[in-house]
Write a protein that binds this DNA or RNA. Structure first.
Lengths: 177, 177
DNA sequence: TATTTATCTCAAAATAAATTGAACCTACCA
DNA sequence: TGGTAGGTTCAATTTATTTTGAGATAAATA
């Protein structure tokens, strides 16, 4: 079989967007499902999933065409994933920016925990102090109970912070070693 | 000041639903915020929050009136929280069922992780096998890459399962002991 | 410099999730 | 044995989130 015009049989070429094969479809679904548990948008998960199964970096065009996404979703999704550190840009001889998945669990989990989870716990300390202050204005027995609850919440928060580094260390180590 | 008709000055009485005080409001808000991170409904978090700050068990009436909830939300919320083990019923000399918060972090976290998080990972194993099977039908180089990705996902899932028991043990221990 | 191509922004539309409340059970009690 | 308080269920509504797409911007190309 002769090749014509297209540079090489294996290179997909600029305007070649084949439909998703079963491996791609299922992998993307896997990430969409995971995303749901973690409170992430399905369209963003699709993008990450496609990049994750792709042997080569992809430009935005690719997810727009192959995932049927709008330009807006693709752009928002990519910038979110970059910000999260789940995706990186790759230099390619093309005007378009190409992206690839960052596939190290340690990196992903660590950034996710820090940016999405921990960030939301940060300001709880201030709130707890406010609650304690208000609690002192209550009647003696009510104050006692409330202050006890605050103490409990503070210990929860301490416990949680204590655990994170351990968690990250465990995620980083390979295969239980 | 004389008491009349009401049994005792300190007992809230059947139809007494004072508005939330600042301690209650702030505590409830704390749980609502936490719930958002964990993907839980705000109305359910409100119920848990109110029970958490209440020195005595409360019947459904209480959250309906004091939190401005519909009967439906209260009922759904309570049954969800019971199912999750975040709330328990308390025997009280009253036809109405009274509830109190289960406030041990270890219990809460363990049940939450198991029911909400782990349950969603369970069936990913089957999907990974399907992906591997499909991958073998691809061209040699594509198959190699895809199978490698599957291997990676399997190791993620293994890592995650390995970590859970450690996590729970850490959450259960007090104050870093 | 004009034109084309890639990407971004954000208000509007579409979709999904949470909440309500009417209808319906089921004990209890008068 | 009929009335009522407490509780549940679920379709309809409300509210929140996600996605879209019509411009705007900017960089590369002609």
């Amino acid at each position: 079989m002769k090749q014509n015009s297209m540079p090489a049989g294996t290179a997909p070429g600029r305007n070649h967007f084949p439909p998703l094969n079963p491996v791609e479809r299922e992998t993307i679904q896997l990430f969409v499902q995971l995303a749901r548990v973690l409170g992430q948008r399905p369209s963003f998960a699709e993008i990450y999933g496609l990049l994750f199964v792709s042997p080569r970096p992809l430009p935005q065009d690719d997810f727009i065409k192959r995932l049927n996404l709008s330009k807006g979703s693709a752009s928002q999704g990519i910038s979110y994933l970059l910000e999260l550190g789940a995706v990186r840009t790759v230099a390619v001889d093309d005007r378009r920016v190409h992206y690839e998945a960052v596939a190290e669990l340690r990196n992903l989990a660590s950034r996710f925990l820090r940016q999405q989870v921990l960030a939301n716990f940060e300001d709880s300390g201030a709130r707890l102090d406010r609650i304690a202050a208000e609690a002192k204005k209550l009647s003696a027995s009510e104050a006692e109970f409330a202050l006890n609850r605050v103490k409990m919440l503070k210990s929860w928060s301490k416990n949680t912070r204590r655990i994170l580094p351990v968690l990250l260390a465990l995620l980083g180590s390979r295969n239980g070693k």
